[in-house]
């Protein structure tokens, strides 16, 4: 029952988000859109409640994760993306580079956290995820400018890649 309510609220919210601005009832929605959205969300919740909502977490915990994910995207992630672009501009204009493929220990426990970490690494300065060791969740990244001394080490920690914010701990709090 609880899974049903959560799935219903989520799919109804997505439907309302996609159809916002269609009319004037309740601010933004047309009345027929509200009725259709109600029916479709009920059907979706009946069919998909066991697939969408598997873990037994408290709803407040879910809400906190979503708020944290949005804050992560607009705060630390965007700052690192800006820095990445200044870095790319520097490389494009000067052509100075020292490439290499490095093994990074992430220490993430779940698949979702590894995915979020890999995508964050791809969009942050000077690094690009190439491959993954599926047993230990280590990532192999291509660095455009390997710092002096790093090529002699066996692997590096993920915290060394981010200079402005501590992105790995954000990812851990969002997706683990």
């Amino acid at each position: 029952m609880f899974a049903f309510i959560v799935t219903f609220l989520f799919s109804g919210g997505v439907y309302l988000l996609l159809t916002a601005g269609s009319g004037s009832v309740l601010g933004f929605w047309a009345p027929q859109e509200l009725w259709v959205g109600l029916v479709i969300s009920l059907a979706a919740a009946l069919m998909a409640r066991n697939y969408f909502f598997r873990t037994r977490r408290r709803p407040l915990d879910y809400l906190r994760r979503w708020v944290r994910a949005v804050a992560y995207v607009f705060g630390p992630f965007f700052a690192e993306l800006t820095k990445a672009n200044l870095d790319v501009a520097y490389r494009v204009l000067t052509g100075h580079m020292r490439p290499g493929i490095v093994r990074v220990k992430t220490g993430m426990k779940t698949d979702a956290a590894t995915l979020l970490m890999a995508n964050s690494i791809t969009l942050t300065p000077g690094t690009l995820t190439v491959d993954i060791d599926e047993e230990t969740n280590d990532l192999f990244i291509h660095m455009i400018d390997v710092p002096e001394g790093m090529e002699n080490r066996d692997s590096i920690e993920v915290e060394e890649l981010f200079s402005l914010f501590n992105c790995p701990s954000w990812v851990r709090r969002i997706a683990e």
Partner: peptide
Amino acid sequence: NATGAHAIARATYRRGHRPVKAVVDHLEGF
């Protein structure tokens, strides 16, 4: 975009293209 870049890089490595002038390559024997 991020996921597509990851897929292209992985496919390129598996095809046998190595990065030019690389100073280190931990993926070599893996």
